[in-house]
């Protein structure tokens, strides 16, 4: 039986893996057909015919992670670092019979490289499912407070 503390711990663990740049472990948290989605519009429901900042399946996430490891990844010389500050996740949906859960987590995310640091703020909505007894991410939707602003390069993961 999944309880609220399990869901909260999962979301916090996910952010910790990103901040620690343990990206292979992070990728393992996603289901095979998962999506990592950052819409361009707060009210957006479609990601095929409307643009998003990110709409990544596990292949595209893997591509990013492999790229970050590469010796010729010049935009990561030197590397970026990041920091998540999460508000305690709120459990919004819990369907124990189906093994599906949804959490809502306000966050501040800071990405830094060289002498610059950029602060992003928003809300992460995790749709979590139980696969072989373990929680997995089916959808991580990240709604920035200002997705329509012009940003510089966002190189790591919120």
């Amino acid at each position: 039986m999944i309880a609220a503390p399990d869901l909260i711990a999962f979301v916090q663990h996910e952010a910790r893996l990103i901040d620690a740049q343990r990206f292979d472990e992070w990728l393992a948290l996603f289901t095979d057909d998962a999506r990592y989605w950052m819409p361009l519009d707060p009210a957006q429901t479609d990601y095929k015919l409307h643009q998003s900042l990110y709409i990544e399946d596990p292949v595209l996430l893997r591509l990013r992670v492999e790229r970050l490891k590469g010796a010729k990844t010049y935009s990561q010389k030197p590397k970026s670092r990041c920091h998540h500050l999460l508000q305690t996740p709120l459990v919004e949906q819990a369907d124990h019979a189906a093994g599906r859960y949804q959490t809502w987590t306000p966050f501040h995310y800071l990405e830094t490289r060289l002498d610059e640091q950029t602060l992003y703020a928003g809300w992460a909505t995790h749709t979590l499912v139980v696969v072989d007894g373990n929680l997995r991410i089916e959808l991580k939707r990240i709604d920035l407070v200002n997705p329509d602003s012009a940003f510089g390069s966002i190189q790591l993961f919120m």
Partner: peptide
């Protein structure tokens, strides 16, 4: 839409390379 996101977005690795 896919092309522009992969190549020309603030989130695009190709965009990062160029910038």
């Amino acid at each position: 839409i896919l092309y522009s996101r992969l190549i020309n977005a603030p989130s695009s690795p190709v965009g990062h390379d160029d910038l």
